[in-house]
């Protein structure tokens, strides 16, 4: 019944969602000469910088697999989460003038941001695959399983976006706090290093981080040519769905109060 409600309102507001996403695209690239090309160029360039810094200056490496591909796989997925959760967090506050004047289901704003960054994410897969080809990393049939981890990452991000956007309405400090949290989060997620480089006791804590599992899922396939363990499958889905549920509950409980705080 409740699910039915959501689905019918999603259908009703699909066009609005489309418009919001295409607005984001237009506004983002409107005044730049290269336009949408930046969606491809920007990740390529930042990833190149990261790769140069970490493989040449810090001499990071991952035994047995190509470090560049290792780094980029983690980076692409982490960047998605970082950008989408940040945009989703500010989406409700940013659209206050609308929320105050007309009835629109408020969850549309964080979700449309997650989708918008999601389209950018799919574009960054192009440079990732180019690097995979150039470095001669072999492809395998398991690549078809990758969307599973992307979907989990997306669901997790939507959940986080719902949580963050509702908290930030009541607590504007959240924008700063989350900036700090993200910096920490970036370092405790094994993006530029291998989790095996850390002591065993610490590894347990690092594995509480859902992002580690989504990235690990993708790396198992892309780098190690193996199917992720059943445990990885389960943990990815469970963390994503639990986060989404928490997000939905928090958002639903607080959304009627938004209007008094914005």
């Amino acid at each position: 019944m409740y699910i039915n409600n959501i689905l019918s309102s999603l259908k009703k507001y699909k066009f609005l969602m489309n418009q919001l996403i295409s607005r984001d695209f237009k506004v983002k690239y409107k005044r730049s000469i290269l336009g949408v090309l930046w969606s491809l160029l920007y990740p390529i360039l930042t990833m190149t910088v990261m790769a140069l810094v970490f493989s040449n200056i810090f001499k990071f490496s991952t035994p047995g697999v190509n470090y560049l591909v290792y780094l980029l796989t983690g980076l692409v997925m982490f960047n998605y989460f970082n950008e989408a959760s940040n945009l989703a967090m500010s989406s409700v506050v940013a659209n206050f003038s609308l929320i105050n004047k007309i009835y629109i289901p408020k969850y549309i704003f964080p979700i449309s941001k997650c989708l918008f960054v999601g389209i950018n994410f799919l574009l960054t897969l192009i440079p990732l695959y180019i690097i995979i080809f150039i470095t001669g990393t072999p492809l395998n049939i398991y690549h078809l399983l990758l969307p599973y981890s992307f979907v989990c990452l997306f669901i997790f991000t939507v959940g986080m976006g719902l949580i963050l956007s509702s908290i930030s309405v009541f607590l504007r400090d959240m924008f700063y706090i989350y900036g700090v949290v993200m910096t920490l989060w970036m370092y405790i997620t094994p993006i530029m290093y291998d989790i095996k480089m850390i002591s065993e006791e610490l590894q347990i804590f690092f594995k509480l981080n859902p992002l580690y599992h989504y990235i690990n899922f993708a790396r198992r396939i892309i780098l190690y040519n193996e199917i992720p363990t059943p445990f990885t499958f389960v943990i990815c889905a469970v963390t994503a769905i639990i986060t989404l549920l928490i997000g939905v509950i928090i958002f639903k409980k607080s959304q009627d109060k938004f209007i008094y705080y914005i």
């Binding site: 609005l16 489309n18 237009k26 003038s97 105050n100 007309i102």
Partner: peptide, 21 residues
């Protein structure tokens, strides 16, 4: 309320229309 100042009038008609349902 739903106008985006960076978009053209044409684009805003669609955006604002969508917001109005």
């Amino acid at each position: 309320a739903g106008f985006d100042m960076d978009l053209t009038a044409r684009e805003n008609i669609y955006l604002n229309g969508a917001i109005l349902g």
